[in-house]
Design a protein around this nucleic acid. Structure first.
Lengths: 237, 237
DNA sequence: CGAACTTTTGACAAGCATCAACACGTGTGG
DNA sequence: CCACACGTGTTGATGCTTGTCAAAAGTTCG
């Protein structure tokens, strides 16, 4: 049920059993609540079961940068299993259900099964690839491109996770959160979105988004999906 | 000689021997030349022995974002050992000397020694942490802060690597490269640097930089070094 | 029904980009 | 050895993209 997402790497039956055998604790977290605070020393990492979450960092000025968005199936703060303390926050974007897995369990399993270690390492590498693309997005593209790019990314990742029906996607972010993710202000995001709607690219209603013209949206967002490193579609278990 | 940098993780003698036993090929690369092209399928990763390198990505418009700077001792494109093809370029910032190590050797050693796998994974995690800070930098800080932050980072990393003598640092980047790293234009970088020099923070000459007032520079750059995850100074072997 | 968010609108300001030109140093070839 | 091209740094004029501030309209929810 909860490890379908790891089809990205080839894992044998023993590895899967070991993963499923890891101890965990279920938790529900309300929208907006923190899963991790910057500076915390954490003992477990969390697997998103339902709902969306995001990672963010604060500048000294108080400005917030959203670093990544996570959807069901994502292992959110793997990075803290080896680093001493969290270097950023993790918050629930919607009401969320998570499985908390002790780091020690993760390390034990990955020590026993090199293929698991490999899979986790790969996950971290893909994570890094997405950061690089975001850096390019925020550093070099204009407002319209940045937003379109974000929309494309979340659409494709929802498709890969099988949690949407084609032209309709879940849209958990407020305009202010889009602003923090793209390095813009909420006001400017609002105006840019209006323009995109006027151009017939998308339409949005509370909590959901419809993409009218995916090829055009990709062009508008200078979007090339390679950086997501999605392999062939998840094998139908 | 070339693995002092891995003191970050605790590795036993056997692990170190295994690392040193990995096959490699030495190469010299001229300033500006590519070590890796986006889209390449690569069979080896490179350890920087001398000189500086950087990773970058191009937007559709042709704009370039510099993603990270690497100095001697850095394992530059570890990420490609598990991913299919490179999602970005790697170029020499100065004339450079590298050791090319086949990916298969890296994978073999990390399979045989879980501690090595762990160390590499950790390296990847720190890499990711630096990307997150850069994203914050480019997304939320103004020109002066961005540049000061970059200066601080490279200064601290040079200190950690022991390749500088305190107020003097190596400075391999042109103003245009600073611009590409910070999401600004070369003209604006020029003006901002002039201001910083006028304020007595730094001075720069061909290839080197002097930091006159480190605390002030840190303040100017909103710099907090935690994200570098540097542990206690490398044990004096 | 009222409080708290979120989206929307307008007027205005500013940071940074753009374009173009020039200065300076370096290496190269005639 | 000089002329020259080339890369890099510098300067000025101008203006667009985006930010700021403020307030109103719409939405959600207890």
């Amino acid at each position: 049920m909860l490890n379908k997402f790891r089809r990205q790497s080839r894992l044998g039956a023993a590895e899967c059993d070991a993963i499923l055998a890891m101890p965990y604790r279920l938790a529900n977290v309300d929208r907006g609540a923190y899963l991790v605070h910057e500076g915390d020393k954490i003992e477990s990492c969390c697997l998103l079961l339902t709902g969306f979450a995001y990672r963010s960092k604060l500048a000294g000025s108080g400005a917030r940068q959203i670093l990544s968005i996570h959807l069901p199936g994502d292992l959110v703060d793997l990075q803290n299993s080896l680093l001493e303390e969290a270097d950023h926050d993790v918050q629930a974007l919607t009401d969320v259900r998570v499985a908390l897995i002790p780091h020690q369990a993760v390390l034990d399993v990955s020590e026993a099964y090199p293929d698991v270690a490999c899979a986790l390492w790969r996950d971290t590498l893909v994570d890094g690839s997405i950061f690089r693309e975001w850096l390019l997005n925020v550093g070099q593209r204009n407002a319209r491109q940045r937003i379109a790019h974000l929309l494309c990314e979340l659409a494709l990742r929802q498709e890969a996770a099988g949690i949407c029906e084609r032209p309709y996607y879940q849209w958990p972010m407020t305009q202010e959160q889009i602003a923090d993710a793209t390095g813009l202000t909420a006001v400017h995001v609002n105006r840019t979105l209006q323009q995109m709607r006027a151009d017939g690219l998308i339409s949005m209603t509370k909590g959901s988004m419809q993409i009218h013209d995916m090829p055009a949206l990709r062009r508008a967002g200078d979007f090339a999906e390679g950086y997501l490193h999605q392999r062939a579609r998840p094998l139908p278990a």
